[in-house]
């Protein structure tokens, strides 16, 4: 069981990495008036067949051959649904997958968002061959990290360079703080 929404996001985004996506778009969007928090993970990876999509929320379904269970998607789905929210996953073979979890913000069963900076930082620095677009939004305020922009400025994708890695972390921490700490 995950203890933070940000850990679910990290876990589910690893599926996109394994699906050989070249672009992964992640958004975390809080709306205090509607009392909703919407998390979307979209990739252009290999996608899933209709049969796979139907079964993917079943913990006893997996495409792995090493074991017979897969808990990532069921955990994510459960975390949203216990708050009175919803969950959906859409996928097309060869096109990619979109996973969307909606949480009721004020629900006592909603996990904390947790450390999104660390989740995004590890995804971005450990998978430099993949482009990430991350948007964090609360009500009217938002910020975006687009690794394509970073690569253009740097002229490389050396996010493991200590200064670059440190910059990405500072960028995430500072901008999360400025948008709003409320949904944490």
């Amino acid at each position: 069981m995950m203890t933070e929404i940000s850990l679910n996001i990290l876990d589910v985004a690893q599926n996109s990495v394994r699906a050989e996506a070249s672009l992964i778009e992640i958004s975390v969007c809080g709306d205090t008036k509607k009392d909703l928090l919407t998390v979307t993970i979209k990739d252009d990876g290999c996608g899933m067949s209709e049969e796979q999509v139907k079964n993917v929320t079943d913990p006893f379904f997996t495409t792995r051959t090493t074991r017979k269970i897969g808990l990532g998607i069921p955990f994510f789905k459960q975390s949203a649904e216990i708050t009175g929210g919803s969950f959906e996953i859409k996928s097309e073979l060869g096109k990619g997958t979109v996973t969307k979890a909606v949480y009721v913000l004020s629900s006592i069963d909603r996990m904390p968002v947790g450390d999104m900076s660390q989740t995004i930082h590890s995804l971005v620095t450990m998978n430099t061959h993949i482009d990430f677009v991350y948007t964090y939004e609360v009500d009217e305020k938002s910020f975006t990290l687009d690794t394509r922009e970073l690569k253009e400025i740097l002229g490389s994708s050396d996010f493991q360079n200590p200064e670059v890695s440190g910059f990405i972390m500072d960028f995430l921490r500072e901008n999360h703080g400025e948008v709003s700490p409320l949904a944490q």
Binding site: M1, M2, L7, L10, D11, Q14, G70, L71, G72, F75, D115, Q118, T119, H121, S122, T125, M126, Q160, P162, S165, G166
Partner: peptide
């Protein structure tokens, strides 16, 4: 290990700590 089991058990801060330690010591 960063699968569901690893992440749930606390692998994310461990991965971060290794990256940082390796970078700090160049």
């Amino acid at each position: 290990g960063m699968a569901t089991c690893g992440i749930a058990a606390g692998a994310r801060p461990v991965l971060s700590a290794f990256s940082t330690a390796v970078q700090e010591r160049t």
